[in-house]
Design a protein around this nucleic acid. Structure first.
Length: 817
RNA sequence: GCCCGGGUGGCGAAACCGGUAGACGCAAGGGACUUAAAAUCCCUUGGGGGCAACCCCGUGCAGGUUCGAGUCCUGCCCCGGGCACCA
């Protein structure tokens, strides 16, 4: 044993001679330098043999640096890329930084630094860490969403949607902190209070930009069927899009304007005993009777005083007010009262509902509270109101009595449709995408307001609209972005008429930045186009996308939407950017998500310093299944290091010795190992692939069978996991050339992987009673004969007649007596 | 409430299509080497019983299907994640 100067314990091989110390720090630094110098990770993007676009979700460069969760994700994705390269693909593995947004801005605010100064520092740290872990990144194509040459095209993207009528302005409620005088994101509102100062948050109505993603809801949903995605991610998207089948029904009112409601249960219309409008519903004013006006006004004020978040929290007491007028139930022709209540949301359906208190929990609660009539129209045996089930029969429903709910729904909608009082309707839960942020740290929305022309697009030749450096970028009480205070930036001439105009001061959502970055990577060197058509057709859509389910809805849905729009506008030839997506699991610490506020963030740097990047990479992958994640703990990291030391040792011994033939059992094990490591690596089951390599190494050592022939395939399989050691040992075992990653993944021979002897389990009545070592392919008769000679078996057969024999070739025999 | 995961030794986990439960690794205990320790190497390690060969029990719980169930079915319980006054 030796100790090096850093005090680390270094292990020498069991033979003690000629084997140098495994020093990961030195090896890793040397190979990282060689990769850069030899351009090992820079594929020819114009002439790839077999293009393989290996994409991973780019990080937000936080001030804390890469955490273990990021490392886990990037390592798993990098192994995939390196494996695919060894399989003969030309792998493009880019990396970049998602550096705009409220997180950076809030952190900068807290520290009193300008984000324009802070972010480059953070990126430098990330870059250093990403190199240190040995990712196969093509740094030529690095991008940051905060660079003007990038966000120029983010703004261009906005303009394409604007010109296509897919971007529009609408007043919408935002959270407003009256003390900090700023707009808050929903995540910044904790139980109705500002996360910073604790003041109760209010609603404010502001004009905001929206993208019409709801126009694409059906397509976004239907395409999911033909994507090769992790099931968990698909389920999350389905949920989010939230398709509901039902009907829109029309209720006449005395105002002359009918109220349309959406319902998933048109079969219950005979039980609709009142209507409820959202407080923001446009007909509220027209339908309010004179004597109810003060009460309605008071209620609207009360609702306004609440924040956007707690409005949506379900289990609270119902509030509402009667407007003083009545509507006509289209099925019964009865007059039913019209109420307003904030449990009805303007953003979903039509902002109005027919209340069926007998068959909806919320309506039932409301009706009970305000003493409104409850009429049962669905009967279920033994059911107690409110009955929600669709497995019942209609009652109190005129000519539809006795029908089951589903059939009743069809007939009732058809009947109402005939009389112009309703129609079938598919409703989605998805809302249009609000992209405005009344903030500083984002790309300015490229619009100029002109009193004569209205909102005018900034001409594309004038892009980017650069984000000006503003010393004091704190939000103020105007409710608009601090950009408005920069007067020379703010005041411009209208590009259309030349008169005085004003710039849009909102910046766009950071999810817009990340909705197209994968299109940019292969084309970063082109300054005059967002993505080059040839490069794009060569490299896109993305071959494999690996990322976490925290982005299952927003990022992945927005990216799909933007790609569809670009296809419809003729800029792309495909409409799904990520045909294959794999979600990795979450790395937690002590059972909880890592977060700064919990104080359980694990910083990888010290581990890498102590153990080396190769050991740490493999340890993260050995923790559990990549697609499930797990709890981070550092016990056991030593096991991986010991494994790499063993490989190091036998490789050095083999390199110094003359070659000798492999024993037959080692040959068998080698082919079995190649088979298992190949399938497991391909399917991202990295933990079991590593186990298989360990088993192989254990056997090679036990049988003293280290040789070039037995170790070269191992080194090739190990290389994606421990790339620096892979390179080093490849050279040691006689490899020449630029890199081990220019070599070929080892092949296995199915015949050689078949062991000549197998162990067969003997069961009596399904219970294990013995085992037999037999040559592969033994016949049933032979096995049964041999089995019956076994003492342990005889005892349980006990002279009884064997009634039935179940034989599974080379595995098991079961004697039923 | 709805939608996904998951529940297996002291711990992280394996187990092809229903076919020998616990591979691989950690930790722990014992031994070898050493003046000693570390490292390394060897052995033991799901629970219970037995001198032993062996036997019984065991994959969240209760049933079921099957020659055979961690795996399939029915009904529950618990944990993690997502959505949620969505009509």
């Amino acid at each position: 044993m030796t100790r090096d100067t850093s005090g680390q314990v270094c292990v020498v091989s069991r033979d003690m001679h000629d084997v140098p110390t495994y020093d990961p720090a030195a090896i890793e630094a040397a190979w990282q330098a060689r990769w850069a110098e030899r351009r090992t990770n820079e594929p020819d993007l114009d002439h790839p043999a077999r293009p393989f676009y290996n994409l991973m979700m780019f990080p937000y460069p936080s001030a804390e640096g890469l955490h273990v969760g990021n490392m886990f994700a990037f390592t798993g994705a990098d192994i995939h890329g390196r494996f695919q390269r060894l399989r003969g693909n030309t792998v493009f593995e880019p990396i970049g930084f998602d550096a705009f947004g409220i997180h950076s801005e809030n952190y900068a605010l807290a520290k009193g630094i300008n984000p324009a100064d802070l972010i480059p520092q953070n990126i430098a740290t990330f870059r250093r860490q990403l190199r240190r872990i040995g990712g196969m990144f093509d740094w030529r194509h690095e991008l940051s969403t905060t660079d003007p040459p990038y966000y120029r095209w983010t703004q261009w993207l906005f303009l394409q949607l604007f010109k296509a009528g897919l971007a529009y302005r609408k007043r919408a409620a935002v959270n407003w902190c009256p003390k900090d005088k700023t707009v808050l994101a929903n995540e910044q509102v904790i139980n109705g209070h500002c996360e910073r100062c604790g003041t109760a948050v209010e609603q404010r109505s502001l004009d905001q930009w929206f993208f019409r993603i709801t126009d694409y809801a059906g397509r976004l949903l239907d395409n999911l069927d033909r994507l090769d995605w992790s099931e968990s991610t698909v389920a999350l998207q389905r949920n989010w899009i939230g398709r509901s089948e039902g009907a829109e029904l029309v209720f006449e009112t005395p105002s002359g304007q009918p109220i349309t409601v959406f319902t998933t249960r048109p079969d219950t219309v005979f039980g609709a005993t009142y209507l409820v409008l959202a407080p923001e519903h446009p007909l509220v004013d027209a339908l309010t009777a004179a004597e109810q006006r003060p009460a309605v006004r008071a209620y609207l004020r009360e609702v306004q005083g609440r924040d956007v978040v707690s409005r949506r929290v379900g289990d609270k007491k119902k509030t509402g007010v009667f407007v003083g007028s009545y509507a006509r139930n289209p099925a019964t022709d009865e007059s039913i009262p019209i109420w307003i209540a904030d449990y009805v949301l303007m953003e979903y359906g039509t902002g109005a509902i027919m209340a069926v208190p007998a068959h909806d929990t919320r309506d039932h609660e409301f009706a009970t509270q305000f003493k409104l009539p409850i009429r049962e129209v669905v009967r279920v045996e033994g059911g107690k109101l409110p009955v929600i089930s669709e497995d019942g029969l209609l009652v109190n429903s005129g000519q539809f009595d006795g029908l089951d709910c589903r059939e009743g729904a069809r007939r009732i909608v058809a009947w109402l449709a005939e009389r112009g009082r309703g129609a079938r309707k598919i409703q989605y839960r998805l809302h249009d995408w609000c992209i405005s942020r009344q903030r500083y740290w984002g790309p300015p929305i490229p619009i100029i307001y002109c009193d004569a022309c209205g909102p005018v697009a900034v001409p594309e030749r004038d892009l980017p609209v650069e984000l000006p450096f503003i010393e004091d970028y704190r939000p103020d009480d105007s409710g608009v972005s601090p950009l408005a205070r920069h007067t020379e930036w703010y005041n411009v001439t209208c590009p259309s008429c030349g008169k005085a105009g004003r710039r849009e001061t909102d910046v766009s959502d950071t999810f817009l930045d990340s909705s197209w970055y994968y299109l940019r990577y292969p084309s970063t060197e082109f300054s005059d186009r967002p993505f080059d058509p040839v490069r794009t057709s060569t490299w896109l859509p993305v071959t494999t996308y690996i990322g976490g389910n925290e982005h299952a809805v927003l990022h992945l849905l927005y990216s799909r939407f933007i790609t569809m729009v670009l296809k419809d506008l003729g800029h792309l030839e495909f409409e799904e950017p990520f045909p294959k997506l794999r979600a990795h699991g979450l790395i937690v610490k002590d059972g909880a998500k890592m977060s700064k506020s919990r104080g359980n963030v694990v910083v990888p740097d010290t581990y890498i310093q102590q153990w080396g990047a190769d050991t740490f990479r493999m340890y993260l992958m050995f923790l559990g299944p990549f697609q499930e994640g797990g709890d981070f703990r550092d016990t056991g990291i030593t096991g991986i290091r010991r494994f790499l030391e063993k490989v190091w040792g036998i490789a050095h011994e083999a390199a110094g010795a003359s070659d000798r033939p492999m024993p037959p059992d080692v040959v068998t094990k080698l082919h079995q190992t190649i088979r298992k490591v190949t399938t497991d690596t391909a399917s991202l089951n990295y933990n079991t692939a590593i186990s298989a390599m360990m088993e192989y190494v254990n056997l090679v050592r036990e049988r003293d069978a280290g040789s070039r022939a037995s170790l070269r395939p191992l080194v090739l399989m190990l290389a994606p996991y421990a790339p620096h050691l892979g390179e080093e040992l490849w050279v040691l075992l006689g490899g020449t050339g630029r890199s081990v990653f220019d070599e070929h993944w080892p092949a296995y021979d199915e015949r050689l992987a078949a062991a000549s002897e197998v162990e067969i389990a003997i069961q009596v009545n399904g219970k294990l009673r013995g085992r037999l070592q037999l040559p592969r392919g033994a016949s049933q008769d032979d096995v049964v004969t041999r089995a019956l000679q076994e003492e342990g078996v005889k005892k349980f057969v006990d002279g009884n007649k064997v009634k039935k024999v179940i034989y599974v070739q080379d595995r098991l025999v079961n004697l039923v007596v």
